[in-house]
Write a protein that binds this DNA or RNA. Sequence first.
RNA 1: GGGGGCGUAGCUCAGUUUGGUUAGAGCACUCGACUGUCACUCGAGAGGUCGCGGGUUCGAGCCCCGUCGCUCCCGCCA
Length: 598
Amino acid sequence: MTVPHSTSPFTTSLRSHLAGSLRVADAGTKVRLGGWVHRSRNLGGIVFIDLRDREGIVQVSFGTDWSTAECIAQAAAVGVESVVMIEGMVVARTGETRNSEMGSGDVEVRATVIEVVGPAETPALPVARGKGEKLPSEELRLRHRYLDLRRPELQQSLILRHRLMQVTRRHLSERGYLELETPILTKPTPEGARDYLVPSRVHPGEFYALPQSPQIYKQLFMVSGFDRYFQIARCFRDEDLRADRQPEFTQIDIEASFVRSDDILALAQGLIGALWREAGHEIPAHFERMTYQVAMEKYGCDRPDLRYGLEIKDYTETFRGIEFGITQSALAAGGRVRGIVVPGASTWSRKQVDELEAIAKGAGALGLLRVKKAEGKYDGPIAKFLTPEAQSSLALEEGSLALFVAGADRITSPALDRVRQECAIRLGLVDETARRFLIVTDFPMFDRDPESGALGAVHHPFTAPNPADMTAFPDEPHRWRALAYDIVLNGLELGGGSIRTHDYATQSRMFALLGIGDRDEQERRFGFLLEGLRAGAPPHGGIAFGVDRIAMLLSGATSLRDVIAFPKTTTARALFEGAPTQVSADEMRALHLRPESA
RNA sequence: GGGGGCGUAGCUCAGUUUGGUUAGAGCACUCGACUGUCACUCGAGAGGUCGCGGGUUCGAGCCCCGUCGCUCCCGCCA
């Protein structure tokens, strides 16, 4: 059989066109197609097969005027999800027989030949679903992933992901960034998340780790003078999972030399713009900016959703003169009273506000104080404590509800953050079509463990502290800001990075502040970075973006699993291939591992 | 590590509240009819370890204990 001529890059020696690509312009063309039987309709004298490939679906018809009886019988007998090759003529459909819901709905292929090249058993889960029909369970979809991945939605998501990767490579390459690879078998890092460990056969009792990120390697590229690096890097973290967290995930990892924060942020905005444009969205060339301090003060979190207001305000002075035990004790302990005013919420029931209080308590608050203004009067449990001065200071609008949390900022911020988000949802303030990009800067360098008081790195130990803060507060490192930044969209972190420490003395001091004061210990853990810093390191910095989340947002998927071809379950299992799995005693012995004793 | 939800036919679900004859529906599947359908339609049929194990009971899909799997959340994730 000869394959009709076509200039499509998809033309092969077996087929001429992709089924889903056929249009009216192809009418009159003889085609040979290969694809999956999406659905079929047998009307007796005429049989229809919806033939599916990655471009879409085309209707193939088998009728007595153009097909042999044997051909029609074969078409009627083939099962769904079987792979068939058909040969036929593209004809324009007329009138009622057109299907406007299909890309190829103005044509059909009148088949003269059908060959079942890959017969399918009845599929374990349906690929073609009726309108409104639910998806099979996640477990089945993962167990039969090859079938789930036939669904056009998943194919489109992965195709978009491919395009985003191509845009990334082109955008960065055009700007002088080199795509350089880093090892997957690396050195365990004591900081951060748990490592996935790989036992060494050659070196008994020693282990590699899979990288949590290529952080140190990309800094060493800068030390080596490559100047601009990027990688679409797989990263691994052995922590418990969430809907938006997989044990292995992909980052767009970027590092550049002789830069300050604004150089990296300009590049990042350009790249985000290119990615969103690829998905069909024009976005602002310059993102809004906010310091960490302002973000925490007004929104209670470091990645605020700016699609709605309900900003947090400080009501400490309003409450200072009020004889109310809860706020008095919080203020006496050095805390503040902060809150949000929710317009139109005075009608919320006691139960509805109690639910908000439960959310606040879940975030660590002792309680949620409430007062509303209805029919010109202040009302609620604390209304009778409010002096006239306090009332005029509050100045509530008619119909609004004020919610307060008292205590230290580390309590009030997360509590009010959650309450704010819930109120926005209840009031329908979240505009799903809005895109509010935000750059958050000036993160603190360190945070304190509330129990031990020990300093920890907010970003990571290689982030450079703000030199001005080091000068101004030389002995108060907890007051230092970091040269770190995050890029946020609608309350979701898309990526983050920092300018790095590039001199040995500062880096060594950072380690000391983080509890690794011993020089030998520093060398043992981070020697390969410290050596590099002593060998002539340029000022450098970078950023990393979460590819999976970006692909999820731009494809409209609701789970990371829908933009990852072969994802893991929430217990980090791969249901399709069955990993992890037990290994034989011989294999364990070769790796110098012993089974856990009872 | 902790908490919530789910698990019944190949798939999606009902049935569990109040234990009781042979566990149902839609889709898919098999057979038959049908020449313009597009979630074709119509007729007939087959299909069940009620996740698994144990217990209570004359009797368990249903009650109790344990366990496994999926999922969502808290802790965790520099």
